[in-house]
Each structure stands twice: as C-alpha cells, then as structure tokens.
Simulated assay, not measured.
Amino acid sequence: MAGNIPYSDFAYVYDKLMYDVDYKKWADFIESIFKKYKQNPSLVLDLACGTGSFTIEMAKRGYDMIGIDISVDMLNCAKEKSSHYENILYLNQDMVNFELYGTVDAIVLLMDSLNYILYKKDVKKLFKNVHNYLNPGGLFIFDINTPYKFKNIFKNNVFYDVSDEITYIWQNSFDSKRNICEFDLTIFTKENGMYKRMDEIHLERCYEINDLKKMVNESGLRLLNIYDDLKFAKAPSNAQRVFFVCEREKL
C-alpha cells in the first residue's frame, strides 16, 4: 500500500485479515493474462507487495520477482515468509516514485493498491514510471475498486468479522465530492489469552474508469482491455473490481 503513512502494527495482522484471499487464484489469473497476450515474462515487479503473499506465489512458479512496498514492517513480514526463496528481491520504496536498476518484463499492482493513491498527479507519475521501467511489449496489470463499489457497497456501511484469533469492525465514510472513502478500522487480536486493540484509518480514492483510461494513454502505455474480477469477461455495470491490462508498445 502507498499513498498514506505506513502502518507498523497493521502489518503484523494483515495476513490474518486477508485470510479469505486466494492468492493462487490471483496468480492463476495473472498467468492466464500472460498467456492470452502471448507473454512469457521472466522478471516481474510486484508494486505495493505488502507482506509478499502474491510475490511468493509467483516465485514458487519460477518467476524472478521484485517486491516493492513503502512499509518496512510489511517487508519484514514478507522477508520472514520468503526466506527460502532466492528469486525474490524486496525494496523499500514508494510505489509512485519507485526506481530500479534496469527494466522488467511485467509489472503488477494488485489488491486495489492504486486506490490508495489519492491524487491524479501521482497516478500519472506512477504510469510514466511504469512505462520507463517496462520492457517493450511488456504488460502492466492493475486492479481497482470500482466507483460502483464505493458508492453502493462501501458508502457509509459498517462491516465486521469475528473469529477466535482476530476480530475487526470496519466503518466506512464516503465523501462523494472529494471521491475519498475513509475506512475506520478497529482490530482486536488475541495474545496470551488477552486481546490487544489496534485502530487504523485508511483512505482510498474512487477513480472513474474513463479517467484511468485517459491517464494510461497519456503515459505512453496502450490499454489492451479491462476485465471483470478474476475472469476474462466484460465488467458489468455493478462490477466491484476490474482489472486493467496495459502494454508498453513493442519497438
């Protein structure tokens, strides 16, 4: 995640909160995109890699991976989980202003991490940076929470989840004028028979699909397609997550 101040305590409960995310399914979908567009990348950059779960899944499949995240604590968790993998390099950088020593074959930005970028100027900067570090013909794949999700699912709702190890209460407040959604999280984790409380505030920006299309094109990247959540289908009007597949044009 980037765009906000990194959250040190949050890093160590992140995987427990994301227990229902099927990283193998996400990796299957990303690989199917590579195959669909006849790409066989060797070196892949995972921007805003968090605790490295997706990075590790791709490393298991033989890809050389670079994981970038702004949070040192997230990267510490990632390194601990991936100590057996020599084909992963982690870098502590902001996803907007990342720097590499060379170019890569593919870049992914997943788990609605782009929504954490609160200003259009920074999204434009990110896209330009992706263009600079992507090999000709390489793919850039990112997903977003859709305007429908912000306006109809998140809006001003409250969500919660209760388990033996971790419990959270998630209160949302969506400002339609600023297109900013504030997530107010209260988390309780069980430690030595007692519960520790954590409070987090996260912000995401709602981006219109057409605005992102324009920014992609202005960056020099070429938009190949937009897909529904983890499937090769046109996203319906009530889609909650969509994937953009972009290409740096071949020489």
Rank of each mutant, 00 (worst) to 15 (best):
I117Q: 02
E86N: 14
S237R: 13
Q93W: 03
Q240Y: 14
E86W: 02
D94L: 03
D184R: 00
N156V: 10
D20N: 13
Q171D: 14
G62Y: 03
Y133W: 06
I33S: 07
K190I: 03
I141Y: 06
E204S: 10
K155D: 12
V96C: 08
D105Q: 05
H202P: 06
K177V: 08
K234D: 15
K151W: 06
S113R: 04
D73T: 12
K81L: 02
Y195L: 14
K36I: 05
H202M: 05
D28I: 11
S113F: 07
H131S: 04
V108D: 03
E200D: 15
Q171Y: 07
A2G: 15
I68Y: 05
S176W: 00
N87F: 05
Y168V: 02
F142D: 00
G67W: 00
S176G: 02
M65K: 01
Q39A: 11
D229K: 13
Y7D: 11
K213S: 04
D15W: 00
L139V: 04
D105N: 09
M18S: 10
M194T: 13
L43M: 12
S176A: 11
E208I: 04
K190F: 09
I56L: 00
G193F: 10
Y133T: 00
K190N: 15
R205W: 11
N179V: 02
D94P: 09
K16L: 13
I33H: 04
F10Y: 14
D28L: 11
F140L: 07
V104T: 09
M194H: 12
E86Y: 03
D161S: 13
G220K: 04
H131L: 01
L110M: 14
N217T: 09
N217I: 08
F98G: 02
L110Q: 06
N132F: 07
I144Y: 02
A78K: 00
D69W: 00
E204A: 11
D73F: 07
Y37G: 12
F159K: 07
K231C: 14
E86T: 09
I70D: 01
Y148A: 09
L110G: 08
L223H: 02
N210C: 10
P6M: 09
T146Y: 01
F54M: 12
E249I: 15
K250L: 15
E200L: 14
W26M: 12
Y14K: 04
K24P: 03
L47P: 05
S219C: 13
H84A: 05
M58G: 01
D161R: 13
E200Y: 10
K177C: 03
F188L: 14
N225I: 05
A27M: 09
V245W: 06
E247G: 05
E182D: 12
D46G: 12
I30Y: 08
E204H: 05
F140N: 03
N135G: 09
R61I: 14
Y227K: 07
D122F: 07
C77E: 04
Y148S: 09
I30D: 04
L110C: 13
N157R: 10
G193E: 11
C77V: 02
C77M: 01
V21I: 15
K16C: 09
N192Y: 13
H202E: 11
N192T: 13
F183H: 13
R241Y: 15
